[in-house]
Write a protein that binds this DNA or RNA. Structure first.
Lengths: 129, 129
DNA sequence: CAGCTGTAACATGACGCGTGTGACACCAAA
DNA sequence: TTTGGTGTCACACGCGTCATGTTACAGCTG
C-alpha cells in the first residue's frame, strides 16, 4: 500500500521523518519516477498524522523537485533532476557533524567510510526488483 | 582567549552549536586533555549567551564524559575515553541521513567518502602545533 | 453531479529553547 | 574570615516551532 514505513523517534518532527522516509523510498527504488505518490489524506491516514501535516510534507517534497503535482489528480514522483551545479559545499556542515560524532565514539576514518559505503550499497540493492 | 568561535545559524539551537564547536575544538587538538575549559559565566560572555544556557552546555559535555568538573575550581578537558564498546550502530541514523542527502544532490559514493576523508584530515591537521 | 485531488487560512494546545532572576555549596587567595 | 571565583539548581517568562483541528476553495475525473 504505502511504499514506506517509519518508526517514530522522540525529539524529531514527524513531518521531517515522513519526508526522510519518502526520500529513502525514492532513492532506494521503491518509488520510481512516474509512480503515483499517496494523496494528502491517504498519507495522513497511513502515517497516523493529520492531513494538514501530510500536506506540508508533500509541499516540501514538491519544493525540492522530488514530486510533481498534477492538479486535481495527485502527485507523481519526479524524474531525478540534473543537479550538476555546485554540489560540493552543500553537505559541508553535515559531513563535519558526522565526522566529529565519529571521532567521539572512537571510530576510524576507514570504519566511517566503510559504514557509508555499506549504507549506500544497502539502499541501492533494494531497487533491484 | 576562547579556543573556538561560532557563526550562528538560524534554525539550530545555540546551545547545540556551542557544544559542537567545543567538541570540534577538542578533536582538532585546540583543546587538549587537561586544559582548562572556560567557566560558565565567562563562556556566556564570550558566546553572547546567557550563563544559564552556558551551564547547560557544560553539563552536557560533562555528561558525555568530555569534561571533568573540579568543584569550586572549574572544568577541565577530560582524557579520551576508551569507548571500545558496541560503537557501530550508534551513528546508523546519521550515516543513513547523510547518505540520502548525498544521493539527492547527485553525489557519488566516492565523492562522499572523499569529502569525509578531506574533512577528517582537515580536523587532524589543526592539532599539529 | 458526486467524489476525489491539492491548497490555503485561521485557531488551538503542547513543547523546546533562551533569557532572566535568584539562591546554594564549594574552593582559593587576600 | 572575608571576598570572589567556580558549578549547580529551581523557578518564571516570552517566543517560536510543531502537530492538530476546522473550514473553505479550486481543479479534475467519473
Amino acid at each position: 500500500m504505502i511504499p514506506f514505513r517509519l518508526i517514530p523517534l522522540p525529539g524529531v518532527p514527524i513531518g521531517e521523518q515522513v519526508v526522510f522516509a519518502a526520500k529513502k523510498a525514492m532513492f532506494s527504488g521503491k518509488l520510481r519516477p512516474g509512480d503515483a505518490f499517496p494523496s494528502v489524506r491517504e498519507l495522513g491516514r497511513a502515517m497516523k498524522i493529520h492531513a494538514n501535516t501530510a500536506q506540508k510534507v508533500i509541499a516540501q517534497l514538491t519544493a525540492e523537485g522530488l514530486l510533481v503535482v498534477k492538479p486535481g489528480i495527485g502527485t507523481v514522483v519526479a524524474a531525478p533532476p540534473v543537479t550538476r551545479g555546485a554540489r560540493g559545499r552543500l553537505l559541508e556542515r553535515e559531513v563535519e557533524q558526522l565526522t566529529v560524532q565519529a571521532l567521539q565514539v572512537g571510530l576510524t576514518l576507514g570504519e566511517l567510510q566503510a559504514a557509508i559505503g555499506e549504507c549506500w550499497q544497502g539502499l541501492q540493492k533494494e531497487g533491484k526488483s
